[in-house]
Design a protein around this nucleic acid. Structure first.
Lengths: 151, 151
DNA sequence: TGAAGAATTTAGATTCTATCTAATGTGACA
DNA sequence: TGTCACATTAGATAGAATCTAAATTCTTCA
């Protein structure tokens, strides 16, 4: 959306605002669908300046390190990425693996006794179950299922 | 530890108690180090009945589906596995990727409004930061670092 | 300017993780 | 004992992410 804001946040993290890096960041800010690296690579390359797979991964790594993007690991599937906008939690669908945002609320920290000498950086709350589509699909008679996309 | 208990919990989930499956389950119950599939495969095969990689993965999948084992996805690294004993949360080290248990405490559920039609199965609380070893390593002068194993 | 050096990108190879295949083995039960 | 579903196996394959080494672009500063 706001090109200047993206430039500023990249610069503020010591990252050059290259076309490829900008494209990745802009795509993530315009889509809250938690895409995979492959999806980002493909989407960014549908538009002009062609970028390589390695660059997409490099840039995602840099953006995550800079704290501008969050990476969500999903068991048995490719990692998902998410521009850090408003704070939120994540819901991961057991069946289709899609990641969705859940409205933020505060998470109680563990007792310092149970943390020991560990350095706590963040608490992350993850919900699991069936997303709306998959939950609906479960309650439909079999002959109707094909009408509900699986992702 | 208790062979009979393992047999019973496998049987109760409709899983035969094969030597390979038993070995995986027993290993997970004896080690709370959250090993990877590769580590489990190797450890189980150091003892007698040789098991194949595919079987190790198959059995881990079955045990997770049966709810006897938990799988923890870690960004950029192999998944970790964990026999479900006492309830606990997880701490994942940013640097070495190791997973450690954190004493259980209740997690507040999200407002049903923010869940919509999703079917919630579980809430998982994950802490991130530096484990004791890595936190210590950070505060040591460089010349001493080699004395602290990274794994 | 423009030369040097740092950061970035690139295609393709490679590594690592996990799953699939098709054949074989095993055990429960009638 | 025969049958059938469940399990295991080695090796091939798929999928995700990283590495390599060379080329390119940017920044800085003489």
């Amino acid at each position: 959306m706001d090109a200047e804001a993206i430039k500023r946040s990249l610069g503020g993290s010591g990252l050059r605002c290259t076309p490829q890096r900008y494209a990745v960041m802009a795509f993530l800010m315009e889509h809250n669908s938690h895409p995979t690296a492959a999806q980002i690579f493909e989407a960014v390359n549908r538009v002009d300046p062609r970028s390589s797979r390695a660059t997409t991964y490099n840039n995602l790594r840099d953006l995550v390190q800079a704290g501008l993007v969050r990476e969500v690991a999903v068991e048995g599937r490719a990692a998902r990425f998410d521009a850090k906008g408003m704070r939120h939690h994540h819901f991961i669908c057991d069946r289709c693996g899609n990641v969705e945002d859940i409205e933020w609320y505060d998470v109680p920290r563990p007792a310092s006794r149970s943390l020991g000498k560990r350095m706590l950086r963040e608490c992350e709350l993850i919900f699991r179950g069936l997303c709306t589509k998959c939950a609906l699909r479960d309650t439909l008679p079999v002959k109707c299922r094909r009408h509900v996309g699986t992702r």
